[in-house]
C-alpha cells in the first residue's frame, strides 16, 4: 500500500494539469516500512522526450534520477515511486509502461482529460515481468 498525504496527491495532480497535453513525470520520495510506503514529497523532473512525443511518452534523464536519489538519501528518505500522467488516456499501464518497468518501484499514473486531472492509480511490476499489478492507494494521513 502507498500513502499519499493530501498535499502530495494534490502536487501530482497539479503536475498532470500543468504538463497537459504532454506527460508529466517525476519521483516520489518517502519512507517504507512493513509493506507500507509513505510519501514525503515529489520531485518533479523534466520529461526528456522531445516535441510531440511528450504527448504519449516520458523519460527521465538518468543523471536527474541519480541526483534525486542522492538528495533523498541525505534526508534519510528513499525514492520508492515514479509518477507520470496519461493525457487523454486511462490511468492504467500501457504495454510500453510494462516493457520499461523496473521491479521495486510504485508506478503512480494519473489520467488527465481535456486538461483536468482524473483517476489516479498505482502499480507494481510482477516478479516475472509479465504484468503490472495494482496496489492500494491511500490518500490522506494514516
Amino acid at each position: 500500500m502507498i500513502i499519499l498525504p493530501l498535499r502530495v496527491e494534490s502536487d501530482i495532480r497539479g503536475e498532470a494539469r500543468r504538463a497537459y497535453p504532454w506527460e508529466c513525470c517525476g519521483l516520489i520520495v518517502g519512507t517504507s516500512s512493513a509493506g507500507v510506503r509513505r510519501a514525503a514529497r515529489i520531485v518533479p523532473l523534466n520529461n526528456a522526450r522531445e516535441g510531440e512525443e511528450r504527448r504519449r511518452r516520458f523519460a527521465i534523464d538518468p543523471l536527474d534520477f541519480a541526483r534525486a536519489e542522492r538528495e533523498a538519501a541525505r534526508e534519510g528518505l528513499e525514492v520508492w515511486g515514479i509518477y507520470h500522467s496519461h493525457p487523454d488516456h486511462p490511468a492504467a499501464p500501457s504495454a510500453r509502461d510494462l516493457e520499461r518497468a523496473l521491479p521495486f518501484y510504485s508506478y503512480v499514473i494519473v489520467a488527465a482529460r481535456d486538461g483536468e486531472d482524473r483517476e489516479l492509480n498505482s502499480f507494481l511490476l510482477a516478479s516475472d515481468r509479465s504484468r503490472m499489478e495494482p496496489e492500494e492507494v491511500w490518500v490522506g494521513e494514516k
Binding site: E23, C25, R49, R56, R57, F58, A59, I60, P62, L63, F65, A66, I82, H84, H86, P87, D88, H89, P93, S94, A95, R96, D97, R100, A101, L102, Y107
Partner: peptide, 13 residues
C-alpha cells in the same frame, strides 16, 4: 561503476 535506472514509459507506444 554505477547502475542507474533509465525510467521511461508512456500512455502509448
Amino acid at each position: 561503476v554505477t547502475l542507474i535506472p533509465a525510467i521511461a514509459g508512456g500512455a502509448r507506444g
